[in-house]
Design a protein around this nucleic acid. Sequence first.
DNA 1: ATGGCGGCTCAAAGCCGA
Length: 259
Amino acid sequence: MQIATWNINGIKARLPEVEYWLKENKPDLVCLQEIKSIDENFPREVFEDLGYNVETHGQKSFNGVALLSLHPFEEVNRGLPGDETDEQARFIECVISRPAGPIRVAGIYLPNGNPVDTEKFPYKLGWMDRLITWAKDRLLLEEPLIITGDYNIIPERLDTHDHDAWWGDALYRPESLERFRTLQSLGMTDALRAVNNKEAYTFWDFQAGAWRKNNGIRIDHLMCSPQATDHLESVEIHKDVRGREKPSDHVPVVGHFSF
DNA sequence: ATGGCGGCTCAAAGCCGA
């Protein structure tokens, strides 16, 4: 089974690319971030025609996440618990069923958090604290659990082209990394890093020739519970997608699992 | 990154992302 994450930076602008990529790769389950669309305007029929079940948690102009699955959804939950006042659409969770049992997947768009001297940074940290609380609860189920999406976290030095340029940014500083480490210490494994100990980026800025110069960072992750990690076979970063016509600034990351 | 690009929007210039 292939489970993928992709921050598409706007479904309206990216629909032809997403459609092309799905046809080429036929992943079982895709978590999309930054659909930048309300639920009513999401082009679900396009994906349904390709055989996908579609669930969205949209928002006007900004954020918004979606799930596309070739397998029926057994359960879908929208919004990260823990703060009733949070109106940003950044979390959607589902359960799909396989003969061997359920597989639980959460698609997340973790807040960027910049600039760090504004309310955006504590919002990011609070969101991560809520994610940790939620993950602790879900891990008690001892199911295959994959929390995947745009984490807006650079896990380590190997994941940036320029440590000095990024260190101190909301994506790469102690308060953010401490919380990412907490998630790891709970038993969530960084799938890419578990199978590949080399430089591997998932994002290149639109600006300053970042793609041309390979000035990238790795911020899109598949974090796997022990029961999911047991079935992890490989992880592919579809880097070529960044070089296509009218690309997103993120590329798809695909986990291959033996379930 | 003192933001150069790109997407979004009450549709021009401003907000947002990372």
